[in-house]
Design a protein around this nucleic acid. Structure first.
Lengths: 225, 225
DNA sequence: CCAAAAGTGTTATCTGTACACCCATGA
DNA sequence: TCATGGGTGTACAGATAACACTTTTGG
């Protein structure tokens, strides 16, 4: 009975919505194992570095992004003994939700980092599982927190916010009831006063994210709320 | 820039209800650091051992309990660089919810393990924080899962189940509306046919836990539901 | 009998849902 | 003018909350 020599990594599930599709930031692996396969960005935790710090640093190095531009939270820790063929590696996964940034992969090794739709990807290690857990967490959090706004630019319309829910939940929501719920939920969104015409039709009001941390009442993904 | 030598431990937040109070299982530390202070049970992850496995083994060694007798889930991972004076130690915390077992600390080093009310304890390392996170997780889960039943014996009355909610949430619930909600929620509890008189008054029906994994509708901790 | 706990019925109120309808724009 | 999307009103169904009331025991 010996305590093992363990390496600790952090991995990031970075989600955004681009072209109306939920996408995840992936890195093409340049070394074995899983050479050439797609994987979540991440890497080893350094001396004296907190876990969040390590996650933010890795992301910045690999992609130039700052996960704190949106929402950032710990997801879970994965430590099956055989999850990495190189030896005992435990990984602490973080979930980040970001708006669709103009230059999402600048500053890093852009050639090997790219946003990809979350459906149908096949990833190295146990990253498929980690990604699935991250998506499920994001889905659940949209119900009872105002987090959907972090997928939007600083000013957005109710229809754009609704599109976030419809994309992440894969449902259709009634535009009229959704409008009422969102504008009625205390602290969810605040009108900026501006209006904008996105397509055709009547101009939409612009909103910014409000101060609430929890939604009362929550939005429910079951029906056409 | 060097990757650090990291040790990985598992710690357990083990909650139960004894004497009408939410209690946590604590170990009195027999070695430095924090010699003599109370701490969450836990220890180092061994070679080839999965994290859950490590958590279950540590608990069994230290207390003779099996966390899988109730509910068991990963809580979070804590990795601040200075959280352990001996060096870099990252801990993966697990949350377990157990019924009030007849002989809760048998089989282990019982002299140094004991159940204690969660209020007012002062723990070694960052275990106060971990405990607080565990309690909050438990509170939240009672709302939308049937997990409250794991605090009860195999057969229980509606009043006993209500006492669980009242204890964990620190609220009073209306016995009549609570009864209806619990017996009405699909798959939450199933009648065994038996009855029992706990105190005085009309005999209560006995129930066992039902097959549901989620509550529809959820119980809300805000009001007198 | 009374007190106490279990359990049922009833009603006012609130929330969610569906959908009719009006508003403001581009073409 | 029409099509399109933004936004409001309203009515019905279901859930919630408050509480009167009956049932079944022990003392």
């Amino acid at each position: 009975m010996t305590t093992s020599v363990v390496s600790v990594t952090v991995d990031l599930v970075l989600l955004t919505i681009r072209q109306g599709v939920l996408q995840v930031l992936l890195i093409r692996r340049g070394i074995e194992p899983y050479l050439g396969k797609w994987a979540l960005p991440g890497g080893f935790v350094l001396d004296g570095e907190d876990l969040e710090e390590a996650a933010a640093r890795e992301l910045s190095e690999e992609t130039g992004l700052d996960p704190r531009a949106g929402h950032f939270e710990q997801l879970a820790t994965y430590g099956a003994p055989d999850r990495d063929p190189r030896g005992r590696v435990i990984t602490v996964a973080y979930l980040a939700l970001l708006p669709d940034l103009p230059s999402p992969v600048a500053g890093g090794d852009a050639a090997s980092a790219s946003w990809q739709p979350v459906d149908g990807v096949e990833l190295a290690f146990d990253h498929d599982r980690i990604l699935a857990d991250g998506i499920e967490r994001a889905r659940a959090k949209l119900e009872y927190t105002p987090l959907a706004t972090v997928f939007c630019p600083p000013e957005f319309t109710v229809a754009e916010l609704r599109a976030v829910y419809e994309t992440v939940w894969r449902t259709r929501l009634d535009p009229r009831n959704f409008h009422r719920k969102v504008t009625g939920a205390e602290g969810f969104v605040e009108p900026t006063g501006g209006t904008v015409i996105r397509d055709r039709g009547r101009p939409a009001q612009l909103y910014r994210r409000g101060p609430a941390a929890l939604l009362h009442p929550p939005l429910l993904r079951s029906t056409s709320g």
